[in-house]
Amino acid sequence: MNRKYEFLKKIDPETSNLIKGLQAIQGVEGYVSDESISAVADYFSVPVVEVEGVLSFYAQFKRVKPGKHQIAICDGTACHIKGSTQVSEWLTFELGIHPGETDKSGLFSLETVACLGCCSLAPVMSVNGRVYGTLDRKSVVKILKEYENK
């Protein structure tokens, strides 16, 4: 097995751990590459197509390398009601990318997620897992500036 993926060995190679294996890959590399799919298929002794089948079913898995700072716009019900569509538009204007994309410099990537569970602070977004609440245009721009300089 490719030395890069030796960390998989911490997981019991029974097929019920397939999702766990993919999550471990994404945890380390930020996404699931073609190369890692073969490694997972090998490790769990299942065909590549089965790994792809599982992978494509779940929204969590990314197939392209995300940016350094990963922005998730919450589009849960409360956030939607409170204007997440506009938050998304503002981010697109500022960054020049749409949800699902990474900017050219590889600094930011943008995605929409179903719910971050912080509904009472709607609208919210998270950057690298940290949640920011009660967003308006000003705070969105400010948060982006902070990360640009990080």
Binding site: L18, A59, A114
Partner: peptide, 25 residues
């Protein structure tokens, strides 16, 4: 503890079990 992977339908019990088994939910 098993972590889900972002599929609403996996809250349904038979889909959840499929997902626990490492399959499409």
């Amino acid at each position: 503890i098993k972590e889900g992977a972002g599929a609403f339908v996996c809250g349904e019990e038979t889909a959840l079990i499929a997902s626990l088994e490492g399959q499409r939910g």
